[in-house]
Design a binder for these strands. Structure first.
Lengths: 140, 140
DNA sequence: TCTTGATCCTCTAGTGGCTAGAGGTCCTAG
DNA sequence: CTAGGACCTCTAGCCACTAGAGGATCAAGA
């Protein structure tokens, strides 16, 4: 367990420059280096990076992840805060799904109505030009 | 119809700095100016900007919009290209919805399993730390 | 031991789509 | 003629990376 950055990358699915970026913004602690100044990682880093990656995949922002990591590091505290981060996030996800679904409907209609003729008859262009007011506010 | 930028903004719902930004990246042509160097817009700009806004609301990227605008400007051409831009976009939307739905499931489970006790019992941290491999690739 | 080439290093700049702010000019109503 | 709101340009910042230059290091084979 004395992994160079490329191996850490392979094991976690996080790209090498991204790992260095996470270190730079303080999400991942600076690891020890070899004599030749290369980073060497251990098991805790693999786990932490997996946590980060998974959180990102779930759509958490870096600031959220920072909070979650801090909480994880102090198991005395109540998990009420983690719970509320997740709940807020859930609400946001629902909003996004709803918005994307509405959008999907509109796009589908557009595509289906496209007669594959000339632009002047094309519903896609028409819809985009005309519907000045009819779409609800957009996600994120 | 000799609108200052603020009035164009009010009529289209696009913020003033954003209008200037669109001009800068060539999405909106540079309008004529007053003697005092202030922009004055006409009806075509209102329409073009509405087209842009609506397209953005539907999630099209600026490059897509550029193409769509070019197509709209040549009504002789076939709308095959517009169709394919819209279809690609639809595919992407579907991917995002699927990913968000999966994510929603996992978050819901996390929140439900959280016993509101101490962090050490809190599944939120655990789930995010452990499930290294179980989420499919993430949207854009 | 030497060489090769893959991997590593730092640093800067770019991405998309805006948004914010500084510091100044113009326009219009009273 | 003046006040203050709207306008101007310019630069920098946001988020979460990504790309590339230009060079150093490491490990395996000859």
């Amino acid at each position: 367990m004395n992994l160079p950055i490329g191996e850490l990358s392979r094991r976690t699915g996080v790209k090498v420059p991204t790992i260095r970026f996470y270190e730079q913004i303080g999400l991942l602690p600076s690891p020890p280096r070899t004599e030749g100044n290369q980073r060497r990682y251990g098991k805790p880093e693999v786990e932490r990076l997996n946590f980060i990656r998974h959180s990102r995949e779930l759509g958490f922002e870096v600031e959220d992840i920072r909070e979650l990591l801090d909480m994880a590091a102090s198991p005395q505290a109540s998990c009420h805060q983690a719970d509320s981060i997740a709940r807020n996030h859930l609400t946001e996800i629902d909003r996004r799904i709803a918005s994307l679904t509405a959008l999907r409907g509109e796009l589908t209609r557009m595509v289906e109505e496209c007669g594959h003729g000339r632009i002047c008859d094309c519903r896609i262009i028409e819809v985009l030009a005309d519907h000045g007011e009819c779409v609800t506010e957009h996600a994120h």
